[in-house]
Each structure stands twice: as C-alpha cells, then as structure tokens.
Design a protein around this nucleic acid. Structure first.
Lengths: 220, 220
DNA sequence: GCCACAATCGGCCGTTCGGCCTATCGGCGC
DNA sequence: GCGCCGATAGGCCGAACGGCCGATTGTGGC
C-alpha cells in the first residue's frame, strides 16, 4: 500500500528527530524530508511533492506562515498542517488564510498528530479543539471569513521561474534571452502571474516574490 | 565639552549593557541609544544622528553589514564600527565595502574600543591588528581594492522617501499624487536614485530597498 | 555675496511595459 | 477522440518608464 509522504519543517533538530521517530513508528506514514527554515520547506515541498507538510511557525528566515502561503501557491496539492506552540488567534487566522488545513499545538499527543495527518490527507481540515473554538467564534463574529474561502490560483513552474527572474531585476527581454524564448512569451507569463497575484506591475510582483521567500532575501 | 555620541547595536542585551557601562565610565563618551536589530539600528541612526554606531554583524533581520550599507547611504556622517566575533575575511571585506571605518573583534579590551571610537570620530580608520594584516595582504594580492574606495553617494531624505514608495509597488503617478508633486519630479528623483544605486530599473531599486531593510520585509 | 546642493518642474524622445486578442502544439484525463 | 490546459508566439496599441537636456527656488556654508 502507499504510505502518506510527510515533510517536517522545524528549526529545532531535537524536535524534528522526535517527531520523525514518532511518525515512522506509525503505520502508513513515511517521512520523506526535513527542513530547518521556511525557504527550505518551500524548496523541499517543490522537490519532493509530499502529501503533507508539518510546519512550525517560528523558523529563521521565512516563517511557517509565509511558507504555507507560498506552498499553497506553488504546490497546492500538498496539505499544510501547522504544528506550533503559538495558541494566539492572530497566528491561527493568519495560518488559515495562508492555506493551512490543520493547526495543532505542540502539546498534542502522538495519536492526535497521526490522526490529523490522515484526516488532512483525506481532504478534510482539522484544528486543535481550543483552536476550533476560536475559529467558530470568529465565524460568528464577522463575515470577514470570506477571505478564508479565497482561492489562491497556483503559479505554474514556468511562471515561478519567470517571477524569480523578475525579482532579480531583469527586463523581459533579458529573461527571454536567458530562457531562450521570445519576449512576447515572457510578457504573457508575466501578465498571468500578475493576474494570479492580484498585482498590476512587475515591481509589485517582485516585491511579492521577495516577501514570500520565492527568492532568497540575501541576493544571489 | 561635547561628548562623542554613540549608538549600540547588538542583539544580546547582556553584551549591550556591559558595553554601555564600560563606555559611560570613559570620559568624553555618551551612549545615546541601543538597537537590537539591523533595522532598528538604521532607524535610530537616522533619528538620533549619533557620531558613532557600534554594529554587531549577527543580528536578527538585517545583518550589521546590511545596516552599515544603509547607514552609509542615509546617514553618511555617522561613523560605523563593526564590533563582532567574526574574524573571517569575508565579513571583514564585506564590512569595509559596506562603509565600515572600523572593525574590532569582541575580545578587544575596553581601552581599544574607546580608542577606536575616538580615532574614527577624528575621521581616521581603525582595524583590529589581525584584521589589518588581512587587509594589507588583500591589497597586495589584487587590485580589486578599488572597490574599497568606491564612494557610495548617499541618498537624500526625499530620495529615500521616493524609493520607499517605489518599493511599495506604486507607480510614478501615484507617488506624485501621494507627495503632492509632479510626476516629472518623481521621475527625476528616481533617475538620481537609480544612478546612485547603480541599477537601471525601478524593480531593481525596489529589490535593493527590500534587501537593505529600507522598507520592512513584512510589508505594511 | 557666492557657491553648492536639494527639491521642484518642463520638453523631447526612444524603450519598455502590459492589456487584449488570436493561434499552434503537446500532454493528460475522461 | 475530444476537451482542458500549459507553453509557446504574434499583432496592435496606449500607457508607463527612463534618459537627455535645461531651468528655478530656497537653504546653508564659506
């Protein structure tokens, strides 16, 4: 039978090792990789295409929430579960808006975690009980929750590639030359990118790419 | 008499407190502020206009080197001294290129630090002895050192303001309207900015602003 | 008073961008 | 096979961008 492929993202080595062992002792699960930063997580999800990624929120560089947002943009098929110490509502709502389908606190039991992975793998959502209560209250309080249903149209691989070059400051013509395609095609891709990201200039798209960690903030 | 006004930037509270007490026990020095991140350092330098800023390299967010680069861009009159544990050549050369006038290791004595501040305040440069040797060797090895002499023309306040709006993704017309000036003036400013930053598009300028911490990476 | 410089604005002009439209080709699912 | 979709490409066109000139005003230093 096929096992659920899981990626772990947390900057604490010890915690990762523990969770890995814990998950691997469960049947039907397989840990296919580990990441220490948000950027690594995004990269590895793209590379390994796991079924589920467990994201810590506090990581050096891009946060787990940033990572979730980008993963939902580039790899929408991977289910995102936040696994964090943060019980704050702000993080919870941000995580949901970023596309997380599960939100568990780190004091969860091994059984709860495994069950969450299975449930999200089946396409359902799952929240820690206290967290669920918060969401319900928020639902009742305001209808801002339409945001939660907003669909983030994912970027294709080619579009991501174009966007990275845009964020490097290249002109359409330079990108075209670099990728050996016509400038017209670059423009078409960029138009699609801007529409998907709801921005209306290459500069805004570049800023989005930088903020979301699509390109390393250090440059290179 | 006027005392030399010093700003401390280091993410270790304990270290800052220690250095502060140490500097204040010396005559002719005054610690006017403390920063925990590169961004804070840049902001406080702009606000307080100290004579000298002591920068750690490893700080959360923008590194001390990023901070140095930006401080030299926005507040060229403030002398920058790196105070760090890093004895690596790369950091040293990067710091010099970023505009640091002094580079001291954290194992320096109190006397050395105070003397460095006075020397740099007088307009001279000062390096830790082992660091100076590296620089000499590098001078001898290659003439890349022309880079060290490269003058980073500082941006004016207005230019910084324009650049921030560019990095927010605004069009020239929008910036003009927001600042109640003509679009032509915005273009002129932006042209000057791009020349100073050695870039040739607004997108590259925006990327520079984001990377250097001129605008917060979180957005807003 | 003079000089340097920041900030403001204008004209002119070529380049780049970005929207709108259509179109071909290849893969993949039903 | 047919349809959907991603990648490729072209034409057309108006708007935005960015370089090159020059010019005025005010402020601050010498």
């Amino acid at each position: 039978m096929t096992r659920i492929r899981v990626l772990l993202a947390d900057d604490h080595d010890l915690f990762r090792s523990g969770v890995r062992r814990l998950l691997e002792s469960a049947a039907g699960l397989e840990v296919v990789g580990e990441a220490r930063t948000g950027q690594d997580a995004v990269r590895l999800v793209e590379e390994l295409a796991p079924d589920i990624v467990l994201l810590d929120i506090s990581m050096p560089g891009a946060s787990g929430i940033d990572a979730a947002r980008l993963i939902k943009t580039t790899s929408p098929r991977t289910g995102v579960i936040m696994l964090t110490v943060h019980a704050d509502e702000e993080f919870l709502f941000e995580a949901i808006k970023a596309g997380a389908m599960g939100y568990l606190l780190k004091d969860a039991s091994a059984e709860e975690l495994v069950r969450a992975i299975q449930v999200i793998y089946e396409g359902e959502g799952l929240l820690a009980p206290t967290m669920a209560a918060k969401v319900m209250r928020e639902f009742a309080r305001t209808r801002e929750t339409r945001d939660l249903g907003r669909i983030l149209t994912p970027l294709t691989h080619r579009e991501v590639e174009i966007l990275q070059h845009v964020a490097a400051g290249l002109a359409n013509k330079e990108i075209a030359h670099k990728l050996s395609i016509s400038e017209r095609t670059v423009k078409n891709h960029l138009s699609n990118i801007m529409e998907k990201l709801h921005v209306n200039s290459r500069t805004q798209a570049a800023v989005y790419a930088l903020r979301s960690g699509l390109v390393p903030p250090e440059g290179g």
